[in-house]
């Protein structure tokens, strides 16, 4: 597989983010040249529910992540609850049950940092609504590795704390509301 050609979008979100995802996925292209990895804080009991609703609304293929799932172009990958999701140099996704970070597992910081180290300037990281500070350190790492950073406009966020915290600590490439994120993902970026 052509790992070098893979464009990757990692979307991190916490409280309120499932609603945002539901407003984004119906408007994604059916056969894009990128893949999306969703890293959302949620209860383990909600795992299959999220996978089901995203599948119903999305034209893209939806793949629940298990150990060593191979990333492929044009699909949406969903991180399971209660595991950190990491990116391997082989193009595989790996899981890790080590200590929670920012009271969270999966931690958005962990996934952003790990993706940044491998995908560098082919990575776009998007941070959505949420009530804790997870994601900020990860976005800084994405920037340091020449990736592209988008933060949801806190004004458009259900719970503005998480995007606002990121904005206080780093300068993103774009600050967008939900429609803006949809337009960006359809722009061939």
């Amino acid at each position: 597989m052509e790992k070098a050609a893979l464009k990757l979008v990692v979307i991190g979100g916490s409280a309120g983010s499932v609603d945002v995802i539901m407003r984004i996925v119906p408007f994604l292209p059916s056969d894009p040249d990128f893949s999306i990895v969703l890293v959302l804080h949620r209860k383990s009991s909600d795992d299959t529910t999220l996978e089901d609703v995203v599948s119903i609304k999305s034209a893209m293929k939806v793949i629940p992540v298990e150990d060593k799932t191979m990333l492929e172009t044009g699909a949406i990958f969903i991180a399971p609850s209660d595991y950190h999701l990491l990116f391997e140099p082989t193009g595989e996704l790996s899981l890790d049950v080590s200590e929670k970070i920012n009271y969270s597992r999966p931690s958005i910081d962990v996934s952003f940092e790990s993706a940044a180290a491998i995908y560098k300037n082919r990575l776009t990281a998007i941070l959505l609504t949420g009530a804790n500070s997870d994601g900020t350190a990860g976005l800084i790492s994405v920037k340091e590795n020449d990736g592209f950073v988008i933060i949801q406009d806190p004004e458009s966020a259900d719970i503005p704390f998480m995007p606002a915290n990121a904005l206080e600590n780093m300068t993103p490439d774009l600050v967008l509301d939900v429609d803006g994120i949809v337009n960006f993902l359809n722009s061939g970026f």
């Binding site: 391997e88 790996s94 080590s98 962990v110 790990s114 180290a117």
Partner: peptide, 9 residues
């Protein structure tokens, strides 16, 4: 060992 996780450790 999976490299991403080992790096973190």
């Amino acid at each position: 060992y999976s490299r991403a996780s080992l790096n973190r450790r």
